[in-house]
Amino acid sequence: MTDWNISPEEWTVIGLSLKVSVAAVALMLPISFAFAWILARWRFPGKLLLDTAVHLPLVVPPVVTGWLLLLLFGANGPIGRWLLDWFGVTLLFRWTGAALAAGIMALPLMTRAIRLSIEAVDRRLEDAARTLGAGRFRVFRTIALPLSLPGILAGAVLGFARAIGEFGATITFVSDIPGETRTLPIAIYSALQMPGAEAAVSRLAIISVILSLGALLISELLARRAATGVNSHVL
C-alpha cells in the first residue's frame, strides 16, 4: 500500500514541476506557433532544414540537448554571457533554466500539433474574408487563429505533459537543486538513489503519471475537436 502522506518537500517538488511546466509552455507557445505557421504556410529554400532543426530535440539524446544549452547559456556561453552582462540574469541552476530546458524538449511536439491544425484551416474561407474587405492581419485574427485554436490548445497541453516528464536535458543543464530545479522526475531519480525511499518514489511516480495522463487526455480531446469540430461544418 502506498503511504499517501505527501511531505512538505514533496509538495514543493509538485509545485515546482507545475511552475516549470507552465512557464515552459508559456515561453514556447509563441515560438512554436511561429515555427508552425512558417512550416505550414511559407515556401522557401531551406524549409526542410528548418523542419528538421525544429524536430531535433525529439531525436537527439536529451543529455546532448542539455549540454548544448549549457554551452549556449552557461556563464561563458554566448547567450548566457549576454544575459548576465545586460540583465544580470543567469539561467544556470535556476528554475527558469529548467523551464527553458523543458520548453526546448516540448517544442517539436507543440509545433507539430499546431502545424497540423493550421494546415487544416480551409484557405477558401480566408479568400472569402479577403473579398469582404479584411486585410491580412484581420484574416489571421478572425479566421485562421480561431479555427486553429483547438489545435493550439492541444499543442499547449501536449507540451505541458512533455515538460512535466522532462529529465535528461534538465538535470544536465540545471542539475538537481531541491526547491529550485528538483522537478518530479528528478526527485524520483534522487529518491531511487536513497535506501528506504520506496514509498516516496511510488507517491511521486503515481502523481506524475496522473498529471501526464490527464494532460494527454485533454490534448487528445482537443485534437479530436479540432479534427471533427467546426471545420467540418463549412458549407
Partner: peptide, 12 residues
C-alpha cells in the same frame, strides 16, 4: 461581393 458556389460561411 463574391458569393461562392460552396458558400464559405465562417463556421465559427
Amino acid at each position: 461581393g463574391y458569393v461562392f458556389q460552396d458558400r464559405r460561411l465562417f463556421p465559427h
